[in-house]
Amino acid sequence: MSEGSVTTRPPPPAPVASAAGWKPSPVLFRLVVLFLALVALFAVLLGHRLFNGAAIRSMAFQLPELGIFALAMMVPLLSGGLDLSIIATANLSALAAAYVFTHFGLGGSGASMVLWHIAALAAAFGVAGLVGLLNGTVIAYLGVSPILATLGTMTMVKGIAVGLTHGGVIAGFPPFMVFIGNGLVFGVPVVLIVFAVIAIPMGVLLTRTSFGQRVTMLGSNLQAVRYSGIDTRRVLVRVYLISALLSALAGLLMMARFNSANAAYGESYLLITILAAVLGGIDPAGGFGKVSGLVMSLIVLQLVSTAANLLNISQFLSLALWGAVLLGVAGVGRVWAWARHFLPKR
């Protein structure tokens, strides 16, 4: 709360109130209602088949990957941009880590093992950092539209990954990575813990720090921010840097879960992350949106897809349902706004 309220919305409540007197935004409210309706519907249709430990745990395993990718998409969206290169970056980073592991890091023991893990992570985040800097520089300093710049880097980065691996798979990692991808701590999937450890600080970063304020302000009015004396270009470079680093993390999680890395994993996630973010109330034109809304929308999408899976419906129908949910939520919002026009005012 260091910055004053710069958005046009009512000032956010004090952080301490987030547990007690917390008032949800309309988007969040709508999503919670949707979530409860879906829970009721699936309770009737599926009952214990959906609401048992195993099914919930499988949801908890699947959500974090899309979740971190969606966070990586959310930050540029808030700034009024877009990052199409997240999946390509994730795969190239995972391949970099995989290369380190498979070429150097399998035989060692004890301290050398720890060192190789650090080296692999450094390789992954180093590669992602370069891609992020490239994106940020081209967008901020050359003024290329984010869609086009990241379309170019997406193609190029994937091309590098395909070129180096010839489209092949690198597989076989140390037990620790397998544990990260598939292990449980007190019954909670490690990937979910990783997601929480990332999502909560991201929420704080984006809404409670001056950096976060600058990012959302950029999305509202870039010219105004520049005239108020903020180096918008540096902020933009950081936005794409964060996006790339989050992508690398998601890539590492994918690698850990599959115990392999490839140039083309997870490509269907790309456009889905935009859907998830917009459903979570992030304005695709920039400026508005919260991590809490995004997380809620991820939960809704995951619930739909797991339920569809349990109902023996093809995964593709749940893809269609995801699209329909977004259009439906927007439609209900419009109808509601239109209806309120005619309702008597209180």
């Binding site: 290329v144 086009l148 379309l151 193609t155 190029m156 980065v157 395909v162 070129g163």
Partner: peptide, 19 residues
Amino acid sequence: YWSECFTGAVILIAVSALA
């Protein structure tokens, strides 16, 4: 295998030049 990489580089250079 390298064709996609070149394509991406050309796209990136072209949109930068345009901008």
